[in-house]
């Protein structure tokens, strides 16, 4: 199976009448680094809650690993780990260790298996030394890593993060991307919801652009140089692309990443 998540024609209306998802269709290939890109209020967070069955489909189909997510959606939470935007929403225990152990205990793990899993997850985010700390004594970046460890400890196939780099300082962002890179190398599928086009350009290999609860476009990072799409989606070009757009006579294909830009400049110098 090529796609690990498939969503067809999904609608979702909130109780107050707001239509958050309006016939959205998208797919995420297994083992990809996917970015759901869209402005605030595009329906990204609502969509993410469908990935692990917290929001049940009002209309449409959500399939994870080939299986339809229906009313009984407990199984899907072992497959999809969801990291919330605000770690204070997710990290509720009195110690870091207990919080990371929460998920695996719910999965029925105990004794050695449990402690191995928790230790592995805490080491993966480099927080093993802080395991006895109370969450309110940690920095924002550390709390974010606790939240990620809490999801990792459940050993999901797909890790979904809502605005993972929001409020993080540059060092924190770099550490986070490194963690995600490591997980991807271990065969996990990673999905992030974001409006950070620069990070998306550098990191993602699959893009889904969303606006007003619909999919505007699906594809690779080449979407980020599509002028019509960028304008319609309420996004902007990556900084690198913005610079090269100032020299329309020079660049054949617009780069989106720093490495791409360096290669393009080298090429121009040689000419």
């Amino acid at each position: 199976m090529a796609n690990i998540v498939e969503i067809e024609n999904l609608y979702y209306r909130y109780r107050d009448g707001t239509l958050a998802l309006d016939g959205l269709t998208m797919a995420i290939p297994r083992g990809s680094k996917a970015a759901l890109l869209g402005p605030n209020g595009a329906g990204k967070s609502t969509l993410l809650l469908h990935f692990n069955g917290i929001n049940t489909c009002q209309q449409g189909v959500v399939r994870v690993d080939g299986r339809e997510v229906g009313r009984d959606s407990r199984w899907v939470r072992n497959l999809v780990g969801l990291v919330f935007q605000d770690p204070d929403d997710q990290v509720f225990s009195m110690t870091v260790y207990d919080d990371v152990a929460f998920g695996p205990i719910n999965q029925g793990l105990a004794h050695g298996e449990l402690s191995d899993r928790v230790e592995w997850a805490l080491r993966a985010v480099d927080l093993w030394d802080l395991r006895d700390k109370a969450p309110h004594h940690l920095s924002f970046g550390q709390k974010k890593r606790v939240a990620i460890a809490g999801v990792l400890a459940m050993d999901p196939q797909i890790i979904v993060l809502d605005e993972p780099t929001a409020y993080l300082d540059p060092v924190g962002q770099a550490a986070l991307l490194q963690i995600l890179e490591g997980l991807h190398a271990h065969g996990k599928t990673i999905v992030i919801a974001t409006h950070d086009v620069d990070m998306t350009a550098e990191w993602a290999d699959k893009l889904v652009v969303i606006k007003n609860g619909r999919t505007l476009a699906e594809g690779g990072t080449e979407l980020l140089v599509d002028e019509g799409l960028i304008a319609e989606a309420g996004l902007r070009f990556p900084v690198v692309t913005q610079i090269f757009r100032q020299f329309p006579d020079l660049a054949g294909q617009l780069p989106t990443t720093v490495t791409g830009a360096v290669a393009a400049i080298r090429r121009l110098c040689r000419q």
């Binding site: 809650l49 072992n78 780990g81 929403d89 509720f92 205990i105």
Partner: peptide
């Protein structure tokens, strides 16, 4: 609203109505 989000986050980690600790 935070209470609601905390609960959703707990559900996301397979919460079933009981907090067990190790």
């Amino acid at each position: 609203e935070r209470g609601e989000r905390v609960y959703l986050a707990m559900l996301s980690r397979s919460y079933g109505g009981e907090i067990r600790t190790c």
